[in-house]
């Protein structure tokens, strides 16, 4: 049984069609990478799945699906007088007994319990991103939406955000949807890829659908795409 089914999705923002003809199905444990140029409707798709904007067509979630969402960036003011612990508790307040404690949630993303008492503004960009992931997984979602994780902010020697997501995915049988610009990431971590350019351009296994022709169609000609692998050092 699919966990998410999107049928003939169409989204208008201010009378402009920003996304249409989108159809795909995800099963439990799938990792879907959404790729496409800027303004191609990637974030719009995530927001539609979240139910944060109105759309035409159908988005069917399996019963009991809990969605976790990590936004691309949130405009939190740096001097907010709020600690990481308080921030995490803002979400897990619904009294769900299955939710993690803030301490456990931080453990999942490899942040020590010392961070509980720190203010949000004291975190580095990388630490803050981890805190946001902790926020997203604290109530044990089974579908995690991730808008453009940036791998660049990680300290050398630590696991990257992608490795972190991959670990969570394996351990908890999460279904993942992530927006990414990095084709290396798509090949390494995703078993399905969805190409968007205001409409669905391709969908399928990365090795099958990411042909140079498709990529040229997606991003326009004149660009060279190559798939490079990073060897672990």
């Amino acid at each position: 049984m699919p966990i998410l089914e999107v049928k003939n999705l169409k989204v208008r923002l201010a009378d402009q069609i920003v996304l249409e003809n989108t159809d795909f199905v995800l099963g439990k444990g799938d990792t879907l990478a959404v790729i496409g140029p800027n303004g191609s409707g990637k974030t719009t798709l995530l927001r539609a799945i979240l139910g944060a904007l109105s759309y035409e067509g159908e988005i069917i979630l399996a019963p009991e699906t809990r969605i976790g969402y990590v936004p691309q960036k949130i405009d939190l003011e740096r001097d907010l007088p709020i600690t990481v612990q308080e921030f995490l508790l803002l979400k897990s307040m619904q009294g769900e007994s299955s939710a993690y404690s803030p301490r456990q949630a931080l453990e999942l993303v490899n942040l020590s319990a010392d961070f509980l008492k720190k203010r949000i503004g004291e975190l580095s960009a990388g630490e803050f991103q981890r805190a946001l992931i902790a926020w997203a997984v604290i109530d044990r979602p089974n579908l995690l939406l991730f808008d453009e994780p940036t791998a660049s902010v990680d300290v050398a020697g630590q696991e990257t955000v992608y490795e972190l997501l991959h670990r969570l995915h394996d351990k908890y049988d999460l279904t993942l949807i992530l927006i990414s610009h990095d084709l290396t990431v798509v090949y390494r971590y995703a078993n399905k890829v969805l190409c968007l350019n205001r409409a669905q351009v391709c969908f399928g296994a990365p090795s099958e659908v990411l042909t140079p022709q498709e990529l040229e169609k997606l991003y326009g000609g004149g660009h060279k795409f190559y798939h490079h692998t990073h060897e672990k050092t």
Partner: peptide, 11 residues
């Protein structure tokens, strides 16, 4: 108030 996006995501 601090993040309408996260509030939406939290239902």
């Amino acid at each position: 108030l601090i993040s309408p996006d996260l509030a939406l995501a939290a239902g």
